[in-house]
Design a protein around this nucleic acid. Structure first.
Lengths: 182, 182
DNA sequence: GTGACATATGTCATTTTTGACATATAGAGC
DNA sequence: GCTCTATATGTCAAAAATGACATATGTCAC
């Protein structure tokens, strides 16, 4: 059910198409939720049936037609109720790299260092992308309350990526100390 | 398939029962993977069929019987191959609270502060639990290579919880500045 | 002119995950 | 005596998610 509320939250900011929502998931929401386009389109149709959103068909010549979704009064009521009254479930994380990390005792130091460097690079690129997005979309000097969601979640993305890099560096440090002692 | 390798990594450290594995997921692995007991028991049976683990039945009087699983040569080969050769998929996170955070524009300042305090408390309790676990299980002065997995993943848990708390405090700070300006 | 990529939405079989139900014993608290 | 919790494992229907396939057009590079 949470995907529904993630979509509802985005649509509550401004009417949007499924494709636009999908892109937002790929670019920003990726830090705390993930979905494929097939799941998003399917959920949007269910949401329209349940009348939490309404759609408007936009015909485009030479381009595929779009469906723009708008939140309904009922939808906004539902969303606020979910945010404030429903029990907050703890985050569910599936991080393959940490699975690997938990089995590092099976590898050599060099193999571990190789994996860590790959991840540091990956996270640095993600971090740069998020910093760029934030500088282009958020006025940090004078943030507006309407933008609070984008601002704080992009901030979260930045802090998460930095933490991940710091953790990788700490692991390298721990390893270097072990290496010297043996 | 990743659940399989998460289980395999744990069993590679020492032979274990499904129940023990489940408890480890609840206590430590929770930071980077989640699974229910039904899924773990089902996967263990499949893994035995595929001969990556073998089981030994332990009869207990007055207590339910156990099945202790041990990794096979084939299993260890499989695991190492997965760790080093398979493409590392990015983490998938489903964090309901951040879904809520992305819709904070629909709430009042007081409602937001209330939610943030709930989460700060939750994360502080998790942090304390992890710090306690680490102090009891890891020798930080002289960490042993066999323990590298537990050490660095518990370290990850600590850094993650701290980052989450810091982020909550930062959001409060951002809000306090906005409040003054309006 | 052709292959790749971006826009835009959809279906669908398979896999994964959830959460409730089920069973059995022991111990602690009320 | 009763309920709750912990140990220990299991089934199973339903829900959620994945990933491949499908369709249609415009643009851009080679």
């Amino acid at each position: 059910m949470s995907l529904r509320y993630a979509l509802l939250g985005l649509i509550s900011k401004k009417p949007q198409t499924g494709y636009e929502l999908y892109q937002t998931f790929q670019q920003q929401i990726i830090y705390f939720w993930n979905s494929t386009h097939s799941q998003i389109y399917t959920e949007l149709r269910k949401m329209e049936q349940d009348e939490v959103i309404s759609s408007e068909l936009i015909y485009q010549e030479g381009s595929p037609n779009k469906k723009k979704y708008t939140i309904t009064k009922e939808g906004e009521k539902d969303l606020i109720h979910w945010i404030l009254e429903q029990k907050i479930k703890p985050a569910k994380i599936k991080d393959e790299f940490l699975i690997r990390a938990s089995a590092f005792h099976l590898l050599s130091i060099d193999e571990i260092l190789g994996l860590l460097d790959t991840i540091i690079e990956r996270e640095q690129q993600i971090l740069e992308g998020t910093l760029l997005w934030q500088s282009q979309h958020i006025e940090q000097e004078q943030p507006k309350f309407e933008q609070i969601g984008e601002y704080i979640t992009s901030e979260y993305g930045i802090m998460y990526a930095k933490m991940y890099i710091d953790w990788c560096l700490k692991v390298k440090d721990i390893l270097s100390k072990m290496d010297l002692e043996n």
